[in-house]
Nucleic acid binder design. Sequence first.
DNA 1: CGTTCAGTTGACCATGATCAAGAGTGGTGG
DNA 2: CCACCACTCTTGATCATGGTCAACTGAACG
Lengths: 262, 262
Amino acid sequence: MPNALTRRLEEYVVLSDKDRAEFARISALPSRIIQPRYDLIRQGDAPSSIFLVLDGWACHYRTLEDGRRQIVDFAIPGDLCDLNIFILDRMDHSIGALTRLRVAEIRHDDLYELVSGSAAIATALWWQELVSRSINREWIVNVGQRRALERIAHLFCEMFLRLETVGLTHGFSSDFPLTQNDLADATGLTSVHVNRTLQQLRQMGLVVFQDRKLTIPDLAALQKIGSFSPEYLHHRHGIRHSETRRRTDAGQVPDDGLAVAV
Amino acid sequence: MPNALTRRLEEYVVLSDKDRAEFARISALPSRIIQPRYDLIRQGDAPSSIFLVLDGWACHYRTLEDGRRQIVDFAIPGDLCDLNIFILDRMDHSIGALTRLRVAEIRHDDLYELVSGSAAIATALWWQELVSRSINREWIVNVGQRRALERIAHLFCEMFLRLETVGLTHGFSSDFPLTQNDLADATGLTSVHVNRTLQQLRQMGLVVFQDRKLTIPDLAALQKIGSFSPEYLHHRHGIRHSETRRRTDAGQVPDDGLAVAV
DNA sequence: CGTTCAGTTGACCATGATCAAGAGTGGTGG
DNA sequence: CCACCACTCTTGATCATGGTCAACTGAACG
């Protein structure tokens, strides 16, 4: 019953039992709770630890002087927030909790030990970093080239696959605790227009999005609307995802669908 | 008379003479020429070397099925194109030459030696990677939140500072070999609208952009219009740049303004 | 209850897209 | 040397996507 981080990294590399034990240990470190709408790290900070999301959603965002806000990525269980702070002088963006958030705090030394103790772990963390960057690039494409309907469809597809990777989906559904305003800030639209676009997606039968849950009855159809192709996520088991056309059973994920990072 | 890569990395870390010699050696490796509008690497490729831009401009871009193209970053002399290919399976985007492009090809082993031979170099390359990511994030903000005039002003500011870092500006001017179409693909606008927006910027006296050259008579003013603040570039000498209000002399960069990557 | 926050709706507007045509420039081959 | 082509830039007319402003609903919570 692997935790979210392990599940995530095993998309990229083969981990040994020892590696897995290390991650289990880290995930079991004393965790910190952040309340929704509070910041975990602020732009300009120079924190001395990095955070591993255990439970809940966060977002990476930047704010302009006049208050405009752009979410540049979401963080879900299994995501490491910013390896970079050990190298860069200060945070160039903020990380805020969207839900009640539980994170493990990993100190510099711990991370160093972790990385130097296992080549697989080092590679996996590198990989995670590079995948995050690929996601950044895709977001540029999303806001730069796609129109509203596509943008939101695309974001739903991406997040659904990312959630699936860490075992947080159940069949066609998943918790999805974003407000329409969050969606607006992530897609560069206004919340009013997000609202209307969601109605359109609902009316087309492509998504059910209510009570902080998302259901995608036909992922392949949604991918088409969102001009989504999953290669940029670099999942090793990408075939599983891209063959969503086959997901015609209503089956639950049998093993550990609820196994949020212990 | 340092080369572009050295100049770039010295924004981040202190290099020893030995480190500098290493970079000089690498920059002097047999170089490859790519003609304008040709691709250096294509999405889906799994190349075995990485490229260091010595001369000319390139762009990182993704294309959608229907032909829409989004440029997600530019590469100028001193930029390493994609450390990631040693880890990720295949390229998730393409890199194309915008001008006649000269690059050095660095093989996996060479890079490995370089990195393991000097902690400063390893840190510097890490840093470069993280700064690139910060730039990616800022581009999301740019296309997501800023309107046309701001977007283009912002892009001009960013590229001008990046060019300055590698010694490719002369006073208030620089080569700037982008077509209006390139600008459109980078900002998520149409070339028609870029044209009109440029006219506006010109009329406001903020930029001179013709014959593949860019002049910014008052960088501080342009930064204001573009709601640009340079922290995200993480330049160590950031003060030099942010105090552009003081650039009231018409002075040339005295030392090595022409020192394009040897 | 009153307050706050998320979602919803309507009317109107503006930014920027689309379509189309023409001008200027440089390169190439007959 | 000239004619032609391709490419970039420019301009005008029209249109549409999505923004703005404002008001209202309903649920959650103290």
